[in-house]
């Protein structure tokens, strides 16, 4: 009886085929997710001498200071932001001075600013200084029924001839780790 032997074998193949199809579909779904979330488009600012890549689905604003600000409009009450700016700095000055100046500006502008830690990091083969900080973002409209947001941010200072390039990452403390990849990719893409 050929049928009685081949049929259970075919059933087993069918079971494996279902699992294979589902795994393939989820694998394709994962690729689609990565491609949708982490696709980048290029930018050039400052007369084209600074270039890099920024998340393709984010909103971008160009100006003099900052040169570029990109934000994710879908990231909740506080939009995750990437900011690029430059500051003049004499070659003999320490780049950390630029971070301290930025910290003073922020301390005046936002609530409960705290600098957390300062480290040396490697960015594209160069040494850079990175500072993590936090503050509270509260809307000044007293009738807005929204809780203040605890923001966590990172500044990275990259040294160039006669100037420093400051890259800032700002996110709600809840989405900081999740969106950190955008910051890492952004910083590593910057060429000047």
């Amino acid at each position: 009886m050929i049928a009685s032997k081949t049929t259970p074998r075919r059933d087993r193949w069918a079971d494996w085929a279902v699992i294979l199809v589902v795994v393939a579909a989820l694998g394709l779904g994962f690729l689609l997710r990565e491609n949708t979330l982490y696709s980048y488009s290029s930018f050039a600012v400052g007369d084209g001498d600074i270039s890099g890549c920024v998340p393709a689905n984010w909103l971008r604003e160009y100006g003099d200071d900052p040169l570029l600000q990109a934000r994710d409009p879908r990231s909740g009450a506080f939009n995750t932001k990437l900011v690029l700016r430059t500051r003049p700095l004499a070659p003999e000055m320490e780049p950390i001075l630029a971070l301290q100046s930025l910290a003073m500006e922020r301390a005046d502008a936002v609530n409960a600013f705290r600098a957390l830690e300062t480290d040396q990091v490697a960015v594209g083969g160069r040494t850079a200084i990175q500072r993590t900080f936090t503050y509270v973002q509260a809307d000044r409209n007293p009738y807005l029924d929204r809780l203040p947001v605890v923001v966590k941010g990172v500044d990275v200072v990259l040294q160039d001839a006669g100037r420093v390039i400051l890259v800032t990452y700002l996110a709600s403390v809840d989405t900081f780790d999740r969106d950190y990849r955008y910051f890492r990719d952004f910083v590593e893409s910057i060429a000047f």
Binding site: R10, W13, A14, V18, V22
Partner: peptide
């Protein structure tokens, strides 16, 4: 019935 191997994956898909 004696359905081909693609039958169940086809149904789920």
């Amino acid at each position: 019935e004696d359905e081909p191997v693609w039958w169940l994956p086809g149904g789920v898909s």
